[in-house]
Design a protein around this nucleic acid. Structure first.
Lengths: 214, 214
DNA sequence: TAAAATATCACCCTTAAAGGGGATTGACAG
DNA sequence: CTGTCAATCCCCTTTAAGGGTGATATTTTA
């Protein structure tokens, strides 16, 4: 079954050539083409596409602003940004707004077609330079300091709950242990983390992004 | 010019079939195949590949441990992980260690070949499910919840120190205020944050990435 | 098998934290 | 000029947290 497509692209020449190219393949069915996103919600509601191709730089309102509107109608609709811009700001705003793919216009239209197919299969198609940016950002921000404090299984369980802000009494009850046992574990945890109290322990775990799940 | 390939894969059958498939194309030149990464550094130094394909689960040492070794020899060498695992931990550790691509074995070998070509062009090839994980992580980390709790300047100062794990007494001294004043501020802070104690406040601020410095 | 680590619980004592209430001063807005 | 808000401080009470010490059973490891 053909992928139902809606395209928002203000460049009329590009728009019609995309229409011709995409229409010539049986894999894609273009159910709408528009030069702006002013009527996006109504369009999406009535056409019910599988994938939306969004230019960013369009008159009056940019494409990014249309992403949440599309996703609100149906979160299953995939959105591929198709733009000449590769600056961090537009990229980040697009992805955070919910875009599923990001293809640069400087690549061949063929890449866009591949991206449409990929996004419809649940993938995240991106031009190489874009993917590189996302990966770098991921490495910087997501990299949890994987320090080893040699906590035991039980200690880790206690610490996980402590980090949620729970009281000692509550933690003990939750883990079916005596209050004094819980305190005993906490004392050992504090020693191993080189902290003096629960507040410092929470701060250390969360600030250093220490992963307690393994 | 053919892409120079080194493959680390402990499954002998898979290894030889990859060799046959890749060797039959003129686009790839396999310059080495190994069942473990024990000699990785020496191998990489002598073979000088463009791309390394790395299995994760291998005897003695896992593939992830070889990534920094490879990158240290020459950072321009691309590394594609080729594995059956799609758990967050292995994925994150691989990418943070410097992997450029992550392909699941459950997809066809053809996908691996495409990935090799893509990574050599500077892309970041990933199986759809993997790319989705990275994107979600990116969205979370890049978008700090910018909730507004209407804290006063003084309250923010107190909260900043509390989040460092300091005691009330210490905070008061640090900000040149009486102990009781500090407590008074804390009471107001707890009300505004909808928490019941300092531990919950710390957890809330750090987990939600609330910026106290704006 | 003996020693070490782990998980469990208990008691005492001190300090820290939190909840409630109240009061004063200064600034600023209506 | 009066009410509100922020910041300051104090008292009292209860609860939570932490340090020290020790004991027992189980499991793991050397």
């Amino acid at each position: 079954m053909a992928i139902r497509l809606v395209i928002f692209e203000d460049n009329e020449i590009l728009r019609s050539s995309l229409c011709t190219l995409l229409g010539s393949s049986g894999d894609y069915q273009i159910v709408g083409m528009y030069g702006d996103v002013m009527e996006a919600e109504q369009i999406i509601r009535s056409t019910r596409p599988d994938v939306v191709v969004l230019d960013i730089d369009m008159p009056v309102r940019d494409g990014i602003s249309a992403i949440p509107i599309i996703k609100q109608v149906d979160n299953a609709i995939s959105v591929v940004m198709y733009t000449q811009f590769e600056d961090d700001d537009r990229l980040f705003r697009s992805l955070c707004a919910g875009a599923d793919g990001y293809v640069l216009k400087k690549t061949t239209p063929l890449k866009l077609f591949e991206a449409i197919a990929e996004v419809h299969k649940g993938g995240v198609p991106m031009s190489p330079a874009i993917a590189q940016k996302v990966l770098n950002s991921f490495r910087e921000k997501a990299k949890p300091k994987q320090e080893e404090y040699f906590l035991t299984v039980r200690e880790t369980e206690v610490l996980k709950l402590l980090v949620k802000g729970y009281t000692v009494k509550y933690i003990a009850a939750d883990l079916h242990m005596a209050y004094e046992t819980c305190r005993s574990h906490l004392r050992n945890i504090y020693k191993k983390l080189h902290v003096r109290c629960g507040k410092e322990a929470i701060a250390k775990i969360l600030k250093d992004r220490i992963n307690l799940n393994r």
